[in-house]
Amino acid sequence: MLKDITIGQYLPGNSLLHKLDPRTKILAVLLYMIALFVVNNFWGLGAMLILSIVVILISKIPLRFFFRGIKAIAFIVLLTVALQMFMTPGEALWQWGFLTITKEGIRQAIFMGTRLLLLVSLTSILTLTTTPISLTDGIENLLKPFQRFGMPAHELAMMMTIALRFIPTLVEETEKIMQAQAARGADFESGNLVERAKAMIPLLVPLFLNAFKRADELAMAMEARCYHGGENRTRLKALKYGVRDVVTGVLCLCMIAGAFFTRFI
């Protein structure tokens, strides 16, 4: 179940997008999100769609990885589309009982649906082409200017790294505990919601206890390896902007400008 989520699953490759600096990619995705909500007509939306397809092609990532990500949020997309379709007031096209589909509703539904799908696809590209470690490095680096205002940039990045490191370990452990409990007659599948939630207690208690013990031991191991926070810490792979990052930056600014321009068509 947990393995279906695309976010946090790096796919090794050597496309142009893989080689970009993570900071460039994070900023590009932010600008892309803005552009996606700036465009307000079909010309703009079409342009964003074409742009997204081009980026997906450049990434050389098999399409099934995007479908996997989309499947995870299919329910939210459908719900949004349905709500937009039925709830937007305007010129009625079709009516049945209290349900009314309006022309404006269909337009809104197409816009929101497309936006959500593109958003998920492009953020998936970010996580699919960037190793979790360089992603956290990028975030740490981008947040550094805010450190002066008390933003714990290094600590946040460290927590994310450790979380990423331990997700597979804890998933494995959960499976092990579940099997151990099932072997002694535990039932996680049947019963109503309350019963099922109760059945989770014998799973969660050992899982949490173990997690605390792990945290304790990890902290000690980190201290033994001279960890003392972000101060004076260097990195094996220092981040460096290259020519391709500058080019990407310029292209992103063009995208934003273009998005605003389409509003006037």
């Binding site: 790294t161 490191r165 013990k213 031991e217 191991a221």
Partner: peptide, 10 residues
Amino acid sequence: NPDNQLVATT
């Protein structure tokens, strides 16, 4: 415990 002393993802 080998698991509880490795910090990074690679």
